[in-house]
C-alpha cells in the first residue's frame, strides 16, 4: 500500500481514537456545534417550507372588480370591454353573486354562517388576471377603475402573495446572515478546540518532528479531527432540527385540522442533508486550518 494512503489511514484512525479517548469532551463539542448549526438550519427549513407553500399559489396579479348592486347593464358591458382592452390582461372572468355565494359555501366552516343570512350580500364581480411581472400595471388599473360608474370596490388580490414573497426574501436574507455569523462561530469553536488539542499533544508533535515527521504528517490528524468534529456537529444539528420538526408537526397537524387543511413541515431532502453535513465538515476543516497554521509552526523541537 502506498505510504501516503497509510499516513491518511493512520491519521483517520488517530482522530477516531482521540474522539473515543475523551468521549465527554467530544460529545460536548459536538452538542455546542450542533446547537450553533441547528439555528440557521431550522430557520432554513421553515423558510423553505413557507416558500414551497407560497409557490403553489398563483402569483400573477389578480384584480377583483366588485360591481354596485343593480348596476346598469350598459355600464357593465362597457366595463367588460374596457377591462379586456387593458394591456397585460390575460383573462377577464365574470363571477355572478350567486356563483360567489356558492363558492363561499364550499369553504370549510362557512356553510353554517351563510345559511343564517336572509339574502345574498355578495355583489357581481369581474376577476381580471394579468400576466406575470405586471404588478405595476395592476396597481395602475386599480387606481384607474376607482370611481368608474358601476364599480363599488376594486381589490388587488395578489398583493398578499407579494407581501409573502417579500417576507420570504427577508427570511432568506436572515438565514444567510445567521448562517454566515454562526458559521464563523463554528470556525471559532473548532479553532479553539484544535488549539487545545495541539497544546495537549505538544510533546508528541515535538518528538514526531525530531524523528522526521513532515508538517503535513503532523497536521493531517488535526484536519481529520476538525472535519469529524464539524460533521458530527452537523449530524447533531440535523437530529435536533428533525426532533423539533416532529414536535411542531403534531401541533401544526392539529391546527390545520381546525381549518380542514393539511399542514406539515417537510424535512430536508437526503441530498440537501448530505450537502449540509459536507458544509459542516468543511467549516470544521477551515477552523482547523486556521488553528494549525497559527499554532503548529510555533512548536519546534529543542
Amino acid at each position: 500500500m502506498n505510504a501516503l494512503i497509510r499516513h491518511h489511514l493512520h491519521s483517520l484512525r488517530q482522530s477516531g481514537v482521540r474522539f473515543a479517548s475523551a468521549p465527554f469532551a467530544a460529545l460536548a463539542n459536538m452538542v455546542v456545534i450542533g446547537v450553533v448549526l441547528a439555528l440557521p438550519l431550522g430557520m432554513y427549513l421553515l423558510v423553505s417550507n413557507v416558500q414551497s407553500l407560497a409557490s403553489s399559489i398563483p402569483t400573477e396579479p389578480q384584480i377583483s372588480v366588485f360591481l354596485t348592486p343593480g348596476a346598469a347593464k350598459t355600464d357593465v358591458a362597457a366595463l367588460e370591454n374596457r377591462l379586456r382592452a387593458v394591456e397585460h390582461v390575460r383573462s377577464v372572468r365574470f363571477v355572478s353573486r350567486e356563483a360567489a355565494l356558492a363558492s363561499l359555501k364550499r369553504s370549510p366552516g362557512m356553510a353554517d354562517v351563510i345559511s343564517t343570512l336572509r339574502e345574498n350580500p355578495l355583489p357581481d364581480a369581474y376577476v381580471v388576471t394579468l400576466g406575470e411581472g405586471s404588478a405595476a400595471a395592476a396597481e395602475r388599473l386599480e387606481s384607474e377603475l376607482k370611481g368608474v360608474p358601476g364599480i363599488a370596490h376594486v381589490q388587488v388580490d395578489s398583493a398578499w402573495v407579494r407581501r409573502i414573497d417579500a417576507l420570504l426574501s427577508l427570511g432568506r436574507s436572515a438565514v444567510i446572515l445567521l448562517s454566515a455569523l454562526l458559521s464563523l462561530a463554528l470556525v471559532a469553536v473548532t479553532f479553539n478546540t484544535i488549539r487545545l488539542q495541539i497544546l495537549t499533544q505538544r510533546e508528541e508533535i515535538e518528538v514526531s518532528k525530531l524523528i522526521g515527521a513532515t508538517d503535513a504528517y503532523v497536521r493531517r490528524p488535526f484536519f481529520y479531527w476538525g472535519g469529524l468534529l464539524g460533521a458530527s456537529g452537523g449530524l447533531c444539528a440535523l437530529l435536533l432540527v428533525f426532533l423539533a420538526q416532529v414536535l411542531l408537526n403534531r401541533n401544526l397537524s392539529e391546527f390545520g385540522n381546525l381549518y380542514g387543511v393539511e399542514l406539515r413541515l417537510q424535512f430536508l431532502p437526503v441530498a440537501d442533508a448530505a450537502l449540509f453535513l459536507a458544509f459542516a465538515a468543511l467549516l470544521g476543516w477551515v477552523g482547523t486550518y486556521l488553528s494549525v497554521s497559527r499554532h503548529l509552526s510555533k512548536i519546534q523541537p529543542r
Partner: peptide, 10 residues
C-alpha cells in the same frame, strides 16, 4: 513504532 509510522512503513 513512531519513526516507522512517520516513514509510512506497512
Amino acid at each position: 513504532i513512531l519513526p516507522m509510522l512517520v516513514t509510512g512503513q506497512s
